[in-house]
Design a protein around this nucleic acid. Structure first.
Lengths: 191, 191
DNA sequence: AAACAAAATAACACTAGTGTAACTTTATTA
DNA sequence: TAATAAAGTTACACTAGTGTTATTTTGTTT
C-alpha cells in the first residue's frame, strides 16, 4: 500500500556524486539536488534531514562496495596480477576518493548519527588500509616491491596516481597502462 | 595624506589561502575573511568587489611568483640537479596547486575583468608547461628520462606526487626525498 | 588647526539556502 | 469503494552571505 517513488536511492546517490564533483562540498545544496532529480526539495528531506547525512551515507555505501570488490581480488594469484587488479579497481572508484576528502569540511558540531557514520567510515578505511598493507608486505617478501620504501609512500603514490589529469583524453585503457607503468618503474631510464 | 591600512595585501592573500584550503571555494566567504583579519566585511569590499576577483588575483600573484622562481633554476646545471630543484619548488607551492583546481567552480557568468584574469592565468600555466616540457625533452635527450613515457604522464606524475598525504608526519626534508625516490625509480625492485 | 582624502565601519535591502508543518496525491487493500 | 499510508508538494519562518551607501575615523598637508 504505497505510492511509487519518483527517485531511487541509486539516482539520489548518482546525482549527489556528480553535483559534489561539480560544485564541491559547500556548493552542493538540496536545491540543486532537487532540481537535478526533478522533485521538490522537501521530498529529499523525507529521506535525509541535511546534506551531511546524505553525503556520509553515500560515502559509506561506496566504500563498502569498494571493499567488497577489493576482497574479491584472487589472493592466490601472483603479486603482479593482484597489483594490476588493484590499480584498475582504484581507478574505477576514483570519484569517491575525491569526495572522501570533503569529510574535513563537515561542520564541527555534528549530530550523533553523523559521528557514528564517520566512525564507521574510519573503520572501513582502516580495513582497506590493512588489506592493502598486507598486499604490500607480500610484494616486498616476494621481491617485487622495493624494501626501502615505506608502505605509506607506496600506497600514497598508487592512490594519487589515479588523479593525474588526462588532459589529452587518451583512451581509458591506454591511460591506465601508462599510469601503472610510471608507478611501477618510475620516470627514470634504468641504466 | 592617508590613514594606515589595518591589513596588507600579503595578509589578505595569506588568510585567503588558509581559508580556501580549510573551507573550499563555496565555503570561503568575505564574512570568514573579515573575521580572520579582524576588520569589517565592508573594508574588504573596498579592494575586491567579490570573492572571485580576490581569488583569481591571488592565483595570478602566486603563479607569477612560482614562474619567476622556476626560471631562476640554473639551466646550465645537470638535468638531475634541475629536476631536484623543480620537485622541491613544486613542493613549496603545493597549496596553490590545490587552490588552482577551484577555478572550475567559478560561476559561468563572470565579469570581463575575471575573464581577462582567467586568460592571464591560462597563459601563465602555458608558460610553465612549455618550460617544463623543455626540461623533459632535455631529460629524454640526455637519457635520464624514459623515452616511452609521454611528457603529460611524467609531469602529471610529478605534480600529483606532492599531494601524497604525509599521514605519519615524516619530517619534510626526509618526506620530499622519499617522494623524489618513488617518482624517479618507481615502486618496483629493479631485477 | 582647518581642510583633505584614504580607510574603515554601521546599517540596509536583497538573495539564496535551511528545515518544518500542513496539505495533496496516488496506489494498495480490506 | 472507502480507508489507509507512503510519497510528494506548497508555503512559511529563519539564517547567513552579498553588495552598496552613508557616515565616522585617522593621519597628512598647508
Amino acid at each position: 500500500m504505497t505510492r511509487e517513488r519518483k527517485f531511487s536511492t541509486q539516482e539520489l546517490f548518482k546525482a549527489t556524486n556528480s553535483l559534489l564533483l561539480r560544485y564541491g562540498y559547500e556548493g552542493f545544496t538540496f536545491s540543486l539536488l532537487a532540481e537535478s532529480l526533478d522533485v521538490s526539495r522537501a521530498a529529499i528531506y523525507k529521506y535525509y534531514t541535511n546534506k551531511e547525512e546524505l553525503i556520509i551515507d553515500y560515502m559509506v555505501y561506496e566504500m563498502t562496495k569498494m571493499l567488497i570488490d577489493l576482497q574479491e581480488i584472487d589472493q592466490s594469484a601472483t603479486f603482479i596480477a593482484q597489483l594490476n587488479e588493484l590499480i584498475t579497481l582504484i581507478f574505477t572508484y576514483k570519484d569517491i576518493h575525491q569526495i572522501l576528502g570533503m569529510v574535513h569540511q563537515f561542520k564541527e558540531s555534528s549530530s550523533t548519527i553523523i559521528m557514528e557514520k564517520k566512525e564507521q567510515l574510519g573503520k572501513l578505511h582502516l580495513d582497506m588500509y590493512r588489506y592493502l598493507e598486507g598486499l604490500m608486505i607480500q610484494g616486498k617478501k616476494d621481491k617485487f616491491l622495493r624494501e626501502t620504501l615505506s608502505n605509506d609512500v607506496i600506497l600514497g603514490c598508487i592512490f594519487q596516481s589515479i588523479a593525474i589529469p588526462n588532459h589529452r583524453g587518451i583512451p581509458e585503457h591506454e591511460w591506465i597502462q601508462s599510469i601503472k607503468d610510471v608507478v611501477c618503474y618510475g620516470i627514470f631510464e634504468t641504466k
